[in-house]
Amino acid sequence: MKIRKVKHGTAMPFVWVLMVLTMGQALKAQALSKNAICKNWKLDKYLEEGVYYAPKEVENQDYLQLNKDMTFEAKMEGESYSGSWMLNTNGEYLELKYKTKEVEKLRIQHLTAATLVLTYDVEPYRYTEAHYVTCQ
């Protein structure tokens, strides 16, 4: 049997790029659903101006737990918080409403089955990415 060699023309890189882009879109599209985000997310690291750094000692146990009944529990800088949440799919953000009636917008930068990258839409954290991970 004669094996026919496939000639990799100029189109191949474009096909690969297209596949990678499509996979990326699929990941994000899957991620932006209530089911995909309803998890216990543990704070892993921060990214600021291209540099990763670990959370402060007081933030070691920080987490964000989004429940299916649209309530949340969180620990931020060691303090416990709770309230309600909503997902805006088109705006690609979460809105947390604390028991104190304060409302905070968290922009979803990236989401996979195991990682959630958020930026808190408030000064001075607007340009710092908070990377969360989950084992669920």
Partner: peptide
């Protein structure tokens, strides 16, 4: 355009 969609979604929700 994205913010228009987000605004409509917010109101509908």
């Amino acid at each position: 355009e994205k913010r228009i969609r987000a605004a409509i979604e917010y109101c509908i929700l």
